[in-house]
Write a protein that binds this DNA or RNA. Structure first.
Lengths: 186, 186
DNA sequence: GTCTATACTACGATAGAC
DNA sequence: GTCTATCGTAGTATAGAC
């Protein structure tokens, strides 16, 4: 073969990374295969050496993004570390840069419209994160509620027009989560 | 003119209603002008007698949807009524029927990617809802937090594959919101 | 593995008949 | 106001050269 054996893997890796950025920034359905390939310096036709369809790319992106994001978020081991983690999640930087942030607020609606295979992947990783937080907080219910609240706060803040209001949304969720966590000590 | 004066208004109303349903169900960028018109029994070309572009339709949909949803949600006058309202919002029926539900979980990401004019509309109505809830709860912060949590819970639940887990997400948010509301009595 | 070229479909939008 | 026809572009996907 004219290309080294590692080349295909490298290219696929670049494509996945770049496509995830584009999808989170502009929405997966709105970006075209041609644009995704141009973004890594290749032509559109080369795409199908790596994925059999655009849908297969989406499935792979979702699986990778959720594993990465949620493993990182779920790695915290106590309340203090979890709170520091949530501070970053609920930050203006995260609001302003969906392309490098969590896939759930950015792609949630598109995942919801996907087929069962993708939603099972999503459920798998989301449940793992919830379990991790439930261990720390000693409450299943609180873990689910905080998880929903974080994602919702990002979705809401990103819809707004003025940074001032965006900051208010983020700070409110952060503060109220702080009260909830401080409340029911096990 | 060959059509009665009320006909255009009626047609536009039907188009707006039908388009909002399609957009919330499948995503606005995914549905085409042709399909939107066929859904109300007209041809694609007739669309431009009502809107100058697809983007203008989206702006109108967002404005209408937010005014309708958020005025209804913001009409509650005390905690008891607010809680009943949240029970409906956080229901399996709402998860399973995005097409007739709140536009924020379904179109949030697309609104976030829209231009300033649309995001200002979104901010206007979201802030009104927040103010209404803040009055009831006597807390600005709690109102924002609950608002984010409701939207987040819908987004998360819709991404999941199994109804059981979906129910758990909804119930958790509902229960935790109940605790938050019951807590800091003014 | 990547390229160019292409088939085929769909999109948003416009023009002209009625 | 709505229709049909059409323009121009862009979408996904495939075929064949290198």
């Amino acid at each position: 073969m004219r290309y080294s054996s590692g080349h295909k893997l490298e290219t696929k890796e670049k494509l996945l990374q770049s496509s995830a950025v584009s999808a989170k920034k502009s929405g997966f359905s709105t970006v075209g295969v041609d644009g995704l390939m141009k973004a890594i310096g290749l032509s559109g036709g080369a795409f199908y050496s790596h994925f059999s369809s655009k849908d297969e790319l989406f499935a792979t992106i979702v699986e990778r993004e959720l594993r990465q994001s949620l493993e990182r978020l779920g790695a915290e081991q106590d309340r203090e570390k979890l709170e520091r983690c949530l501070k970053l999640y609920l930050s203006m930087s995260h609001v302003e840069h969906p392309e490098t942030g969590c896939a759930l607020p950015a792609l949630g609606a598109e995942i919801a419209r996907s087929d069962m295979k993708i939603r099972l992947q999503a459920e798998h990783w989301i449940c793992r994160l919830q379990e991790s937080w439930a261990d720390i907080l000693h409450s299943d219910s609180l873990a689910w509620a905080i998880l929903s609240q974080c994602i919702g706060a990002l979705v809401v803040a990103r819809m707004l027009a003025t940074p001032d209001t965006q900051r208010r949304v983020l700070k409110s969720s952060y503060d109220e989560i702080g009260r909830q966590i401080a409340g029911p000590v096990a």
